[in-house]
Design a protein around this nucleic acid. Structure first.
Lengths: 150, 150
DNA sequence: CTTACAGTTTACGTAAACGTTAGGTATTTA
DNA sequence: TAAATACCTAACGTTTACGTAAACTGTAAG
């Protein structure tokens, strides 16, 4: 049931399947270009829960890493950590499972609608930037002409 | 050169072209579903600069409104107000115009690249949510079966 | 004209999302 | 085994993006 995973030169034992690779907190932080404090903070908020070594240090599996990536993705779209927490289905404990699932389901489908709107907005934003660039270009050409033949 | 625009029952005079319609701060806040404080805050940061009535009250034209919408759109994609300020080309004063334009142009094109990445990420996020919904659905069906024939 | 409501500035308050520092423990390396 | 890192918790600090309250002014309605 347990498989080895090298860490700090020793062999650690964690759950099967997750055992291909694991990382320390600073390794992961380096990979994802965030601070270790950020990762610990997400753990405080209940967004991730990595295993620990016998010496109490955090070990992150590829599953943990995937979840972190998902969180960062959410953030890049302006979702708050609380929202992301709900999206992952972390929230609403103390409910019977059926109710919990229904609520998560409803939440997910409103988020899907939001995502469709975001697509449209992303297009608008792109057009906005393109038109700004166009104006800049024209202004630049005008300035160059003035320079060449004053 | 000046055209009338009704506001507070009186006729105000503001620049041509912008004169189709104008709103007070609370009207605009209502339309965009944000607080008046938020609008004033964006003005403090230099993101918008509405005209004033002779009595010093702010009047917003459709151009102002469009800019506000753009700001809110940027926010929804997780851009900070400072970034948005740059995107609008509000920043980098105290530079000669040519340099200013070049900088804005460069900034805009990096943002365009970012937008392309965002599209991919948006798709990933959608897939993630869809797969979560799928899991929820399956779990729900399993629970229902147990309920029907225990 | 006055009453009531909206708008103005100024300034302090606050929640979210971390940064930073202190004091202590684990792990790695010389 | 000692010294140098890396990690841990706990707590306070900081920045961003506003909220809120005070004290005053402009505008609309009776």
């Amino acid at each position: 049931m347990l498989r080895p995973c090298r860490l700090y030169g020793k062999i650690m034992y964690i759950e099967k399947q997750k055992s291909k690779e694991c990382w320390t907190i600073s390794e992961l932080a380096g990979q994802l270009d965030i601070s270790t404090r950020t990762i610990r903070f997400y753990e405080e908020k209940g967004l991730i829960s990595p295993e620990r070594t016998p010496g109490n240090q955090r070990i992150y599996t590829s599953r943990n890493r995937a979840r972190l990536k998902l969180i960062l993705r959410g953030k890049r779209f302006g979702f708050s950590l609380d929202e992301i927490s709900e999206m992952i289905g972390m929230a609403n404990a103390d409910m019977d499972e059926m109710e919990q699932i229904k609520k998560s389901f409803a939440f997910a489908s409103t988020k899907l609608k939001e995502i469709k709107l975001r697509r449209v907005e992303l297009d608008l934003l792109e057009q906005e930037i393109l038109s700004t660039m166009d104006k800049l270009k024209k202004r630049m050409e005008k300035l160059k002409k003035q320079e060449d033949s004053p």
